[in-house]
Design a binder for these strands. Structure first.
Lengths: 197, 197
DNA sequence: AACATATAAGTGAACGTTTACTAACATAGT
DNA sequence: ACTATGTTAGTAAACGTTCACTTATATGTT
C-alpha cells in the first residue's frame, strides 16, 4: 500500500477507535491489529501515539463545513438560513458521529483543543445568530433577548439532540429522524427569541 | 485513619482524578500518591480499580438531589417550580463541577451508565416539564409544542450553560454568574414553549 | 528484455517502563 | 495477644516504542 494511502487508512481507523474509547482507552497495538498490520508501521507515518491523535483531531478541526454555501443557497431570511445551515451540520454528524464523540473527548481532555473545535464547528452558528439578532436592518426586533445567550441556547439544544440521536441513541426519540427532531427544535428556538417571519 | 474515613478519602480523591482524566487516564498509583498512601491501601477498600470507579459513579448517581423539596417550597406555577428546581441543580454543579465531568465521561464510555446518570439527575426535570405540559388542568395550553422535544431543549441548554461556565470556562459568559445565565435561559425557554404565566 | 541496484513497505520480536494487583511483613491501639 | 491499618517488595501483563530484518516495487544500465 502506498504511503499516502496507508497514512489515510491509519487515520481512519484511529479516528474510530479514539472516538469510541478516548486517547487512553486505545493502544497502538489495537489500532495496528484493526489495520491488519504490525505496530511498527504506524511509526513510519506518525512520530508517536500522541502525534497520531493530534493528526486525527486536526483533520477534524480543519474540515470546515460548507455552511457558508448552504447559507447563500436560498432566500435570506433569518429562519431560512439558520435551518439550511443546521441541516448541513446535522447531515455531517449523522453521516459520521465520530466527529461529535471526539469533540466531546477533546472537550474533557484539553480545553485548548476544545476551543479549536468550537471555532471550527460552532462559531459559524453562534456568530450568525448573534450578528443577525444584533443588526437592526432586518426590521425584526430582538431587543428583548440577549443574542449571546440565545446562541448558547441554540448550541446546547442542537448538541443535546445530536448526542441523543447519534451517540447514546435515546429511545425517546426513536420515531423521529435527526433532521425532524432538529427542525422542531429550531421552531422552538425561533419562538424563544420571538422571531416572527 | 479509620476504615470508613479512609474509604471516604479514597472516594473523594478518585472522584477528582477520574473527573479530570477519565478512567483510563488515571492510574491506581496516582490516586494513592495523591492520598499520600501506598497503592495497596486502595485494595483494602475496593476490590479493583474498576470497583473503585463504579463506587465513585454510584455515589454520584445515588445522591438524589432535593429537587422535590425545592419544587414544593413555594408557589406552584410551572415557571416558579422550574426555576426553583433548576437553582438547586445549578448550585450543586457550581459547588462540585466534577459531577458533571464524570457524567460526561460516563456518557462517552458506557451508554448503560449514562442512562443511570440520566435517571438520577435529569429525569426529574424532563418528567416535570413533560407532565406539566401535558396536563390540561393548569389552564395553560401547550398544545402547539411537543413536550418531549421541549424537555430535550431544556436539558440541552442547561447542560451547555453549565459546561461553558463550570468546565471549559468560556470567556463569553465571564460577566454572568451561572445562576444568572440559567435564569435568562429559562426565560427564553418559557418563551419557546409559549408559556404565559 | 534482463539484470543490478535502490528505495519503499511491512514484519515480528524485543526493549524498558508502567500498569493493576498481591503477598508477606511491620506497627499501633485496645 | 489480637485486630486494624499500614508498608515494602514483588508479580505478570500491557504499554509505547525501536530494532534488525524481509519482501515488494520502482529505476537505471547494458
Amino acid at each position: 500500500m502506498k504511503a499516502a494511502e496507508r497514512r489515510a487508512s491509519i487515520l481512519a481507523v484511529a479516528k474510530i477507535l479514539f472516538a469510541d474509547c478516548g486517547y487512553h482507552g486505545v493502544s497502538v497495538d489495537q489500532i495496528a491489529q484493526r489495520l491488519g498490520v504490525s505496530p511498527a508501521v504506524l511509526y513510519q507515518h506518525f512520530a508517536s501515539k500522541e502525534a497520531l491523535y493530534e493528526a486525527v483531531l486536526n483533520e477534524i478541526a480543519c474540515r470546515r463545513e460548507s455552511y457558508v454555501e448552504a447559507a447563500l443557497a436560498g432566500d435570506d431570511d433569518f429562519a431560512g438560513v439558520l435551518l439550511r445551515m443546521t441541516r448541513v451540520y446535522v447531515d455531517s454528524v449523522v453521516e459520521d458521529p465520530d466527529y461529535l464523540k471526539i469533540e466531546m473527548q477533546a472537550l474533557l481532555e484539553d480545553a485548548r483543543l476544545a476551543q479549536q473545535f468550537f471555532d471550527a464547528r460552532w462559531k459559524s452558528f453562534t456568530d450568525f445568530i448573534e450578528v443577525s439578532m444584533r443588526e437592526q436592518t432586518t426590521g425584526i426586533n430582538f431587543s428583548q433577548v440577549n443574542p449571546r445567550i440565545a446562541s448558547l441556547m441554540f448550541q446546547g439544544m442542537l448538541r443535546e439532540a445530536l448526542y441523543a440521536k447519534c451517540i447514546y441513541q435515546a429511545e425517546q426519540y426513536r420515531d423521529l429522524s435527526a433532521q425532524d427532531l432538529v427542525e422542531q427544535l429550531i421552531r422552538l428556538f425561533l419562538n424563544a427569541i420571538e422571531y416572527r417571519q
